[in-house]
Amino acid sequence: MNIIEFRDVSKIYENGTAALKDINLVIKKGEFVFLVGPSGSGKSTFIKLLIKETPVTSGTIFVAGRNICILKSSKIPQLRRNIGCIFQDYKLLSDRTIFENIAFALEVIGKPNYIIKAQVPQVLKLVGLYSKMDSYPHQLSGGEQQRICIARAFVNRPPILLADEPTGNLDPATSESIMKLLSRINLIGTTVVMATHEKSIVNAMRRRVVEMEEGLIIRDQKRGVYGS
């Protein structure tokens, strides 16, 4: 089943920058895909289009078989509930505890309290930070904060996880543990798309690699490595 499909997708920003040029790409359910390429190659735009943070200029994008380009703005939240996102800068709320940060993601989509109380500890165990539930983000290391970010993205069990340079601020050893966590989440059946420009990680994982350059896909390889 195609969970993500780009058909002739182009994105030209208002300032005239062509970030994506006629992209065609199919990602199957349960795949783990690396998007690689230098800064400005269109990786982030790819992710922004998927969560409809910005509209496509032309072409169509399907998520789980649905054309998201014709989605009414009132339906965008529903789309985003099915796509977890993690970032290089974590985007944790500094005035809330770890528990509250993750609970927040469930609260704002209207989940009742008993579900929050059950699911938050569960996902914290999954990322191995159950004991830090009552800490604040600044009391955690970068790697730990990234795990919390993953926990928050995954607590609602979305079928898709998008990661934009999740290891960008982390040292190699910590990055490796983050990749292990993402692999585990992928093994449960979650489709993972990760944008990165870190060679060692991509080479170690041996997963599908989609290489982009100046808005074009220049390589799409199963079990690939960073450089060709």
């Binding site: 965008i76 939240p77 985003r80 927040f104 993601a105 989509i109 209207g110």
Partner: peptide
């Protein structure tokens, strides 16, 4: 703004935000 950003990302409805 940070809270709003997270709310939108995890799919809070416009009305809720």
């Amino acid at each position: 703004r940070k809270e709003i950003e997270v709310m939108k990302l995890v799919g809070a409805t416009n009305g809720y935000v």
